[in-house]
């Protein structure tokens, strides 16, 4: 592939993934909260984030680290993958915020997305951990970051939510991680 074809392919992929994340987020917003605790949900849009993080995507002169394919667990995200995943998350949260989620959810979502993606990227670069474990760490980080923001905005009393949010982050990360691992294993073969 020449340079412009590569660029077009990347843009198309990012568009598809952004749309997919947006739709998954929208569908999830239609499901009534079943726990009664604000902030506890699975976050299916993060499947897309996980997949993009791990896919051998590259832009600029950086070459994709596609040579290290030893199944899902051996795949290491590139810096490009991280930036693409971050871009998709931010666009998805902004779009979700102005359409169905509301402004305050948007601010919390951005905080959670930036922190959890950064932690997941760093953990994945160590190459010791499976996609599922990285996803669990991401889910927990997501909830902790949001809770810290809530402490800043609402006061110390909300800190009592922390154990509940950590456990729910663990559960959500586990579900998302298992799904993402399966999807990545398949998608790596065709992309």
């Amino acid at each position: 592939m020449n340079k412009s074809a590569k660029k077009a392919r990347l843009i198309a992929l990012l568009g598809i993934f952004t749309a997919l994340a947006f739709i998954l987020g929208f569908i999830e917003s239609l499901i009534p909260p079943f726990t009664g605790i604000p902030g506890v949900k699975a976050g299916f849009a993060n499947i897309v984030t996980m997949v993009v993080l791990y896919l051998p995507i590259s832009f600029g002169t950086a070459s994709a680290e596609t040579d290290q394919r030893h199944g899902t667990s051996g795949l290491t995200p590139s810096l490009s993958g991280y930036l693409c995943a971050l871009g998709i998350s931010v666009v998805r949260v902004l779009l979700g915020g102005i359409t169905y989620n509301g402004m305050s959810a948007m601010i919390y979502g951005l905080t959670g997305a930036v922190f959890s993606l950064s932690v997941m990227f760093l953990l994945a670069r160590i190459r010791c951990f499976s996609v599922t474990a990285v996803s669990v760490a991401g889910g927990v980080t997501h909830n902790i970051a949001q809770l810290l923001l809530a402490v800043l905005m609402l006061g110390n009393a909300v800190i009592y939510y922390l154990p509940m949010l950590i456990i729910s982050g663990l559960a959500a990360g586990l579900v998302i991680g298992l799904i993402a691992a399966v999807v990545i294993k398949r998608l790596v073969l065709i992309l």
Binding site: T72, C128, F129, A133, I166, G169
Partner: peptide, 25 residues
């Protein structure tokens, strides 16, 4: 799906949850 060293992350998370439960109380 799972690797041996994953146990580090899972136990850290559970430890964190325990600490978050005990310390404010």
């Amino acid at each position: 799906m799972f690797r041996k060293k994953d146990i580090i992350i899972y136990s850290l998370v559970l430890l964190l949850a325990g600490a978050a439960y005990i310390i404010p109380a």
